[in-house]
Design a protein around this nucleic acid. Structure first.
Lengths: 161, 161
DNA sequence: TATTGTTATACTCTATAACTATA
DNA sequence: TATAGTTATAGAGTATAACAATA
């Protein structure tokens, strides 16, 4: 429906049916990097969700799957800290990933309070498809920004993080 | 409490009290620009909210105030379209700004369905302070990224939008 | 028929507190 | 006392649908 609305707006704008919002001035907003970063981030999430729709995976879920894949056996606390996800939120997020049989929580021998996280075999298989779709999303983003800007931005922001 | 948590983590990490989450690998996440854009965007919003706390203004409210200031008399529909805010959400957001006497909705002569938006005198006065705080936030962001990257990013993203 | 603005509902994400079981 | 994980609640933001008034 995002697309439906956009189409309708474009058509209506062509016919000049409502005051052209395109002509509104940004004012001081034009000097705030945060505004543009936010707009880009929204574009990215929408494209990600749309591209990954066949697997019904959202950005936060995807980030957890990749971290668990790259760091099997780590606890929820460390995964959450790495991604900046609150433990309360991560608990529910993992509940969903566990329900889908993609992630398993095992007892941690050295500390009975914590759970060690692993991908299941099923999770690994799903992740192959998921990564393919995510790669397509990244191509969409690269097409939007241009290869040079995409590469440069990645280098800059990796450095920041 | 964001700061409190960070402080606690740093202290605990120094004492080596929990597995160093810093050493977790990002895996494929390291190649996704969206991940880093999201982290930066979160940093920006948190700094914005903290810096603007004296005026209790959130990013979306600030963007509406600036657009109305730069485009007095426009309708909710055009402001919403410009900022990518759904009309349902904008209605509630304006309700709050109206409650604080910063924005006024007037009848629109040419179309009885729509409301024309204006800053009140009180709103203009508040916006002076708000802009000063927002400027401080922008300086924080520039300090984070470095002046060159800040400028370059602004130019790139303005172009995209 | 379509648009403006409103209210209502549902879901995601964030923030916080309270609780348990461990340490 | 402090930490790991869970559950619950509240708020912002997003997405829809339905509605009244108007075009």
């Amino acid at each position: 429906m995002k697309r439906r609305r956009a189409k309708r707006s474009a058509a209506a704008a062509k016919k000049g049916r409502f005051p052209a919002a395109d002509t509104l001035a940004l004012g001081q907003l034009d000097n705030h990097l945060g505004y543009f970063v936010r707009r880009l981030q929204i574009w990215i999430f929408q494209d990600f969700i749309r591209t990954l729709a066949p697997m019904k995976v959202r950005p936060a879920q995807y980030s957890v799957l990749l971290i668990v894949e790259a760091n099997p056996g780590r606890t929820q606390a460390s995964v959450g800290q790495k991604l900046g996800i609150e433990r309360a939120r991560l608990a529910r997020l993992l509940h969903e990933l566990e329900r889908r049989k993609w992630v398993a929580r095992h007892a941690n021998g050295s500390d009975a309070r914590s759970h060690s996280l692993y991908l299941t075999v099923e999770g690994e298989k799903a992740l192959v498809k998921i990564k393919q779709l995510a790669e397509q999303h990244e191509l969409n983003l690269r097409a939007l920004l241009g290869q040079k800007r995409h590469r440069q931005s990645l280098d800059w922001l990796r450095d920041f993080a």
